[in-house]
């Protein structure tokens, strides 16, 4: 008999798979966006919202990357509208319902920002904002998928002594987000890499600490240990990809056009960055869940009578 039926999420489970699909397409969209930057294709389509005045521009050169990115983005936009409506109809938890609308707002803002990027000729602050809002949107959709999953509905029995895990998990997620921001600033403004390297150090320390806490906790759920393992593996991969990106950039500094190995490795670096953020968001959500379960359990425990 399975005790982990999604009772506490009510009818929210009905949109779970749809949210997962939306998250997958969002990931694809982030990869497509990284390909646009890597191939210096951002301004290959000078107009917006149409491309060369049409929905089907000539499929040539860098237009393929830019218009491909727009097509995936439009599809993700449609998925998000459907998801927000579905969440609104089926989701019993009010804050989660709000999350659906926030996701919709962010995807609309992101589309407009993409347009502004094109019409204002790719100013670095807008590109950085567009890159970060993409990651924010990915977090929101991953959160919706997670909050409607049966894993979320499971009763959790983690016990983590010492500093509450939820704060640490939040700090790790925040640091990872900051690191994505620093990566975007480095990439779009050609500024120095030092802040991004310090960010990597901070992320490694916090994520390492978080993983150690999860693995040391004898009763951590498989969900927590799974997310922590994923975080660790992705982080190791990311550090290698970062190093490779850096070395390849140096080796091709005098290139006269985008180089395939650089585009491939930097795109992978952006993609794995998004996955790390997703893993950390899941860990953070899950550890809030642990904490609140503990809180509930404590409030249910009658106070020990004090013997006179």
């Amino acid at each position: 008999m399975n005790h982990s039926l999604p009772t506490s999420i009510g009818s929210a489970g009905s949109y779970h798979y749809f949210a997962v699909i939306t998250a997958c397409f969002t990931f694809l969209l982030i990869v497509a966006g990284a390909l646009v930057t890597g191939n210096e294709a951002g301004l290959s389509v000078p107009d917006w919202p149409l491309s060369y005045g049409s929905l089907n521009p000539p499929w040539e050169g860098n237009i393929r990357y830019e218009h491909g990115h727009r097509l995936v983005a439009a599809f993700v936009g449609l998925l998000t509208i459907a998801l927000a409506v579905w969440v609104w109809k089926k989701e019993p938890r009010r804050p989660v319902r709000k999350l659906g609308w926030i996701a919709l707002g962010v995807v609309v803002a992101q589309g407009i920002l993409g347009g502004v990027t094109v019409l204002w000729y790719l100013p670095a602050p807008i590109s950085v904002l567009h890159a970060c809002l993409a990651q924010t949107f990915f977090c929101l959709v991953v959160s919706l998928a997670w909050l409607s999953s049966s894993a979320w509905a499971q009763r959790v029995r983690d016990r983590s002594p010492g500093l509450p895990l939820n704060r640490l998990a939040m700090a790790a997620a925040g640091a990872i987000y900051l690191q994505l921001l620093l990566g975007a600033i480095f990439r779009h403004t050609q500024s120095g890499i030092l802040p991004h390297l310090l960010g990597a150090l901070l992320v490694t320390l916090l994520a390492g600490w978080l993983m150690a806490r999860v693995f040391r906790s004898p009763r951590a759920s498989s969900v927590l240990t799974g997310a922590a393992t994923l975080l660790g593996v992705l982080l190791a991969l990311q550090l290698l990809l970062g190093l490779a990106s850096w070395l390849l950039r140096l080796a091709t500094a005098d290139a006269v056009q985008p180089q395939f190995p650089v585009v491939a490795v930097t795109t992978a670096h952006v993609a794995v960055g998004a996955l790390i953020l997703a893993a950390s968001v899941i860990l953070a959500l899950q550890s809030w869940r642990v904490r609140s379960e503990e809180g509930r359990a404590e409030s249910r425990t009658p106070a020990t009578p004090v013997n006179p």
């Binding site: 804050p95 929101l140 939040m170 869940r289």
Partner: peptide, 16 residues
């Protein structure tokens, strides 16, 4: 709990 786990994305948005 629900309010708290919303803090993360909302804080990220605000910071952004």
């Amino acid at each position: 709990c629900l309010k708290n786990y919303l803090c993360l994305p909302v804080a990220l948005l605000a910071a952004l």
